[in-house]
């Protein structure tokens, strides 16, 4: 427990270790620490930014969803209107076509009727002549009779 030159030796050693620590030990370690601190701060800031943009994106999505829904509704309505119009049109077409067909059929009927009437008329003349000749049982002047009969026929 004597005080001796050890005190000087230890002082020199102490100075050396402090110097060494200051030059070669402290800077890299504290550098790494502050670098990591900065990294973490940056990371947190980036996370904040990401959160914010996520919120923005979500708001945008909600907004666009509403717009899209409106659009879809509009399209559906349009389609419905169109469908109604097409049905209406088809109905009109069908009605016209029907009318046309009915008209054509009636014309046909009228035509057929006329034809049948004239044929009938022709046959009625000859039948009447034949009938009359049988009734009279005598050869008559066919020309004079047929004129008479034609008159009759025309009166039918």
């Amino acid at each position: 427990m004597n005080i001796n030159a050890t005190i000087l030796g230890q002082t020199i050693a102490f100075a050396f270790f402090v110097w060494f620590c200051m030059k070669f030990v402290w800077p890299p370690l504290i550098g790494v620490l502050s670098e990591r601190q900065k990294k973490i701060a940056d990371g947190l800031a980036a996370a904040d930014r990401a959160n914010k943009s996520l919120e923005e994106a979500q708001a945008k999505i909600a907004q666009e969803l509403v717009e899209v829904k409106l659009q879809a509704q509009e399209i559906i309505e349009q389609a419905n209107r169109r469908a109604a119009a097409i049905v209406e049109e088809a109905k009109d077409d069908a009605r016209t076509e029907g009318d046309r067909l009915i008209a054509a059929a009636q014309a046909e009927i009228a035509q057929q009727l006329g034809r049948a009437r004239s044929a009938l008329r022709a046959q009625v003349a000859s039948i009447a002549v034949a009938g009359a000749s049988k009734i009279i049982n005598k050869n008559l002047d066919e020309a004079a009779n047929s004129e008479l009969v034609d008159q009759l026929v025309a009166e039918l």
Binding site: I3, N4, T6, I7, L8, G9, Q10, T11, F14, A15
Partner: peptide, 9 residues
Amino acid sequence: NITMSMSLS
């Protein structure tokens, strides 16, 4: 010696 040298430093 050791402790006093450090405190004196």
